[in-house]
Every structure is written in C-alpha cells, then in structure tokens.
Design a protein around this nucleic acid. Structure first.
Length: 636
RNA sequence: GCCACCUUAGCUCAGAUGGUAGAGCAAUUGAUUCGUAAUCAAUAGGUCGCCGGUUCGACUCCGGCAGGUGGCUCCA
C-alpha cells in the first residue's frame, strides 16, 4: 500500500497510508489527541475529522482549545437546535443557521411563533440529543439529487438555496434523522455540544428582505465548556448594569416621555451639562483645525429639498410643515444651508478649502421599531461639517479628517473600527470621480496605519464613504464618525470656484461627522465609563459635604470659592450622617466629595475623597482648584 | 414598518383560577448633630399606559391605539 507525506504545524513531516483522514492522523500522533480532536485544517482550510488527506498537504488538528473551536461548536449547536426543533415541531421548515459573533441562530418557518416555553422545551430536547452523542456525517450529493431530497422532505427553503448555488455538488450533514444542507465542517458528534443556552426569539425576514416572509429566529450561544458559558452570561449581566438607559435615569441625565413623542430626548440639567461640555470641546477642536462655525435654520423650503434630491430620496424620513400655503421641510441633514453659504458669493480657488462646521440639530422620522434609548432617536444634533475643496485637495482633506477622528477618539479613550464602502450598483457620478474619491479615502486609511475593512458596493449613491464604529456595552457596533464624498450636491447646486486660469470649475464636497450624533455618542460614552465620567466630562465634578450643621457657614464659603474658580460643584448640607451623604454621592458617580468637618474648619482646608474611596490630604481651596485643573487638562 | 414579549405609586417589583391593590427605596413631617456606601419614627402617594368590548362585576379575558424591550429591515 502506498503512502502519503503530510506536513504538521511544527514543520515536521509524517507518513500516512493513502486515504488517511484527519482523524487517522490524530490517532497516529496520540490517543489523547484523537479523543480531543474535533476537526482539522488542511492547507489552511477547515475540514471535518473524516476529511481525507492528500500527499504533501499541510495538516493541523483542531481541538476544543484551538481558536477555531468556538465557531465550530456554535455552528454545530445551531444544527443541534434545528434537529431538536424538527423533532418537536415536525411542520417547521428549516432555513439557515450560522454561527455569529456571540453565539448562533437558526431561522425557521413555522405556523405559530415560538413562545418562551418552547425555548425551554427545545433546550431540553437539545440536551437529550447531545447526551445521545449522535454522530454528524458529511455526504456529497449532486445538485439535482439534493434538490430532489429536500423537495421530498418539503424543505422548500433549502431547495431555493441550492437552486441559487453555482456548484454542481453540494454537501449535506446528517445527524440521526435530521439532514441539512451545509458547507461544514462540523463537530464529529453532538456530544461535543456541552455548554449552550438559547437566549431569545425574534422575527427575521427570509434572506433579510423585508418584502419576503418573516421567519422565526431563535438565538443562542455556545462555548466549549460550561465555565466559559457562565462567564459570558455573567458578562451579559454586567452589560445590563452599564446600560445607558438605566444609568441615564439613575444619574438624572435625560428622559423620554410618550407625551412628548417617541425618540425625542429631554435633557435634564446634568445631561445638558454633559452635552454642553462636549459641544464646547468640539467648537475648540474645530477652530484649531481651520473650520468655520456656521448656523442654519431648522426649516427650509420644500423646493430646496427637491433640488437637493432629498425630497425624492429621503422624503419618508422627513417631517414637513406648512405655513401661508408654503411647504417647509424640517431639516434631516445640515448640508443645504452650508451649500447656500458657499453660494452666497463668488468663490476663488484661493478661498479653498472651506470647512463649514455646525452643531446641527436634525429630525428624522425613524421607523418606530428601530428606536433605542439615546443610540437611535428621532431628533439629534450632529457635529457636522462640509468641506468644499478642489479635487486635488481631496487627499489632504480626508487625511486631515482621519487624523482628527483619531485625535478625538484618543482623548475619549475609544477603540474603533473603520470600514471603507465603495461604489454601489445604483449610483451617480463619473468613473473618474469615484476612482479619485475612493483612492483618496483608501490612501488616507492606509496612511492611518490602522486596519480597516472594505464593504464593496456599500457606499452611498452619491459617493464612497468611511464609517467609524464604536461598541456599546453589549458589544453592538454603532456608527459614529463617518466621512462621505459627495458628487451630487456640488452638481445640483451648481457650486463653482474660479480657478487660477480664470475658468469656473466644480469643487468636491466632503460630508463628515466626528462624534456623529451627540446623543448617540453620549449613550456609548455612558456605557464605556459605566457612568463614571472622567473629571473633564463629569457634569458634577465635586460635592461639598458637611459632617454636621456646625460646619455649614465655612462650607458655604468653600462652595462659593470652588464655583467662582469654575469647578462644577454642588453641595449637600442636609442634616444627615456623612456616610449617608457619601453613599448618595457615590451612587451619583460624582468624582470628588469635599468633606468638611471641624478639622477642616479649624485649619481652613478641605479633604477631598475620590469616588474610588481614597482620600487626598487636606488642602487649601486654591491648591485643590489647581489640582483639579491639572486633572481636567489630562482628559483622564 | 415587520415578529415576539412587556406597561401596577417617582424608582425597583409582589398581586393562583375575574370580586376595583401591596412592599422596599425615594418624597413629606418630626426626632437625632452623628467623620468616609443607608439613624429612627410617622405621614402621604395609584381612574393598575390609553380607548372600546365581554361580564352582575376586569388590574386580571378580548380588540384597537400609544410607549417600551429583544431582533429583522433601515440608519448618525
């Protein structure tokens, strides 16, 4: 019998019989490895244990300890769930069930939606099946055979999936009576599904298309062992405690009211303070970078929105109001008044680039189901700017914006992810424009030295864009900063500048936000810090506390001096025990508590207690102000 | 907008099978003057999200609407 040679990850070579599988290789290395093996990797591609190895292949054994194990376990657990569902609900039709970032899901077409009780039943059935250690085996079918098989089973969604496939062979996985179309690979047996939990039920459109049938999706999560699952569930609990909706109410930052309307934020004093701090910061940072501050009105005539194309493309999201027979659109974006400022006079190439910055409040009629605390609202304020420049300046301008984003995110301590979205099918503008703009964006991203992803065809119809995403406490990504090139508006509004040769030419426009929507940014900020804002952001930086009523007169002067020095300070002179007042201040996440007892009165000092429980030495108010000023400047 | 679930005092939550409601915290009042996460006591507080229906009778059942939660679609 002939032999084949395989390369192992450590660089060594091993001889095996022709026709050997990954499992055979594992056995030849050791019984322990064979027992723990769950899959393999041949020449970098994930395969089943049963996969046959070829001569000269590079082969790796995947065990539960491998980084690839998690995805495998989740994917196989989704199949296990589908098997359980088919046993409990034979009329259910299976569709797709992938592993996802924090677990997996599987979509079913069922007559009646699943109830939370069903979830428990399904989970119980899954445990039973996992215990039975049902082997999963891969089988290859021709396209036509597979279509016939699924048609006979009544699995119409699977038939549709196969019909859309290019390949003439497809792989199916069988576990007991359950058979599913799947690329694989999978765990060798359901016994490896040891730590899973079904988490929620949701509706989801077939193939993500809202015009097609809504299926029932079951979400779950799975890990290679119970301990990791428990840790994950504990993390979820912790995330709930950081939820900006809970903390926002506890810290009395903002509220919503169904009498006011869904998605419309009412900023309470502390939340409004926080906003003001961010807005002041933004104005300063923009002025430093050569932006001009501008302001436009809240409503603009309908005709202007028609000219810009918003009326045609964005109408459903806009609010309109009519007065004296004239229709006005409440602005959903700030660009139009910026266009009009540009057009208010003749522009020379010497004026460019122009960078108009506005903290612009916009209103968008978001569909009811998408609203989510501060992260998705109907009225919000963007730190919006439009850069109007010559095409040859585009490169430098984009780089400038990226470095702006990087500076600001650094100050806030956020890690972020960047994505480049390129030309979609439905779009306007010349190939040359698109290429120039896309290249400008790409080269700026490359220059930034940070990794980025490319979303082919995901750009706006009017130009390519870079999106920058932050994560919330539940690891959901939220787009904050975005940089978009726009070819339409300069065209539609006939923006021009006089070039050096005296010809009128068309400028390029960049639409960009750094924080994005202040509302959303604050939501993410709250969760990031769990409400413990750094001193420079804390709406209340310090609280003057008295031990007894005796210190009130002195405490009042301390309070007055701190206020005078620009510290955002409040006081609590109530006749309560110190411990009680400290507890309340602590729950309010106030950074500093200025404790004043008889000692401080006698020495004319203040003892500052930080919210972590530590105390600073007693000091004079002037020293304290100095100390706090340094901390504010550090942005920490 | 679509699917599921939820909506009881300011907040967090109890209230089997229909007989119009209860706790803790907060609030108010009084006592206490007490140095680093809760001093004690008393009082007050709810047309049980809104509108309609079934019923002798609905917080409890049914329908509609509004708001919220988790997803889908969309998006800063």
């Amino acid at each position: 019998m002939s032999e084949i040679g395989v390369m192992l990850p450590d660089g060594s070579k091993k001889m095996l019989q022709t026709g050997s599988t990954v499992l055979d290789l594992a056995k030849s290395i050791g019984a322990g490895l064979a027992r723990n093996a769950i899959a393999g990797k041949i020449n970098g591609k994930m395969v089943d244990l049963q996969a046959e190895i070829g001569d000269g292949d590079r082969v790796e054994i995947i065990t539960e300890k491998s980084p690839e194990a998690l995805e495998l376990v989740r994917h196989s657990t989704s199949h296990l769930m589908a098997q359980a569902v088919k046993m409990l609900f034979p009329q259910a039709k299976v569709t797709i069930g992938p592993s996802i970032e924090n677990g997996f899901y599987y979509d079913f077409d069922v007559d009646a939606p699943f109830s939370p009780d069903d979830l428990d039943k399904i989970e119980a059935k899954m445990r039973e099946l996992a215990k039975a250690a049902i082997p999963l085996s891969r089988e290859e079918f021709s396209r036509d055979e597979a279509i016939r098989l699924f048609r006979d089973l009544g699995e119409t969604y699977k038939v549709e999936l196969i019909e859309d496939l290019d390949a003439d062979k497809v792989s199916l996985y069988r576990q007991g009576d359950f058979i599913d179309l799947c690329r694989g690979p999978h765990l060798p047996s359901t016994a490896f599904c040891k730590a899973f939990k079904l988490t929620s039920i949701a509706g989801a459109y077939w193939r993500g298309d809202e015009n097609r049938k809504m299926l029932q999706r079951i979400y779950g999560t799975a890990f290679t062992d119970k301990k990791e699952l428990d840790e994950y569930l504990a993390r979820l609990e912790e995330a709930k405690r950081r939820d900006h909706r809970r903390i926002g109410r506890e810290l009395d930052l903002y509220s919503f009211s169904d009498e006011v309307g869904a998605g419309l934020v009412i900023w309470h004093p502390k939340g409004a303070m926080l906003r003001t701090i961010l807005e002041d910061f933004e104005r300063k940072e923009h002025l430093k970078r050569g932006y001009d501050i501008v302001l436009g009105p809240q409503i603009l005539k309908k005709e202007l929105w028609q000219r810009s194309g918003h009326y045609e493309n964005y109408r459903e999201n806009m609010y309109f109001t009519e007065i004296d027979g004239q229709s006005y659109g409440i602005k959903p974006m700030n660009c139009l008044s910026h266009m009009m400022i540009y057009k208010s006079q003749l522009r020379s190439y010497r004026d460019l680039p122009l960078r108009y910055f506005e903290l612009g409040t916009v209103h968008r009629h978001e569909r009811a189901g998408v609203l989510h605390g501060l992260l998705r609202v109907r009225g919000f304020t963007q730190d919006d700017a439009h850069i109007i420049c010559m095409p040859e300046q585009l490169d430098a301008e984009i780089k400038g914006v990226i470095s702006f984003v990087n500076d600001v995110m650094g100050i806030f301590g956020f890690d972020y992810e960047m994505e480049l979205s390129t030309r979609p099918e439905k779009s306007i503008g010349s190939d040359e424009d698109w290429e120039r703009a896309t290249n400008a964006l790409r080269s700026a991203l490359e220059d930034s030295g940070r990794p980025f992803e490319i979303n082919e065809g995901d750009g706006a119809f009017y130009g390519p864009k870079i999106d920058i995403k932050l994560r919330d406490a539940l690891d959901r990504r939220w787009q904050c900063a975005t940089i978009q090139c726009d070819f339409t508006l300069p065209e539609r509004f006939d923006l021009t500048y006089v070039a050096a040769d005296g010809e009128k030419k068309r400028p390029v426009m960049v639409h960009r936000v750094i924080l994005g929507a202040i509302e959303r940014f604050i939501g993410v900020l709250i969760e990031h810090h769990a409400g413990n804002f750094p001193l420079w952001l804390a709406p209340v930086q310090g609280l003057v506390l008295t031990v007894t009523d005796n210190q009130v007169p002195y405490a009042k002067t301390v309070y007055g001096e701190l206020l005078e020095a620009g510290i955002r300070v409040q006081h609590d002179f109530r006749n309560e025990k110190l411990g009680f007042k400290i507890r309340e201040a602590q729950l309010q996440r106030i950074p500093y508590m200025f404790v004043i007892g008889d000692k401080e009165v006698e020495t004319g000092t203040v003892t500052a207690r930080y919210r972590d429980g530590s105390n600073l030495p007693a000091m004079k108010v002037a020293e304290l102000v100095d100390f706090l000023g340094r901390e504010v400047k550090s942005f920490k």
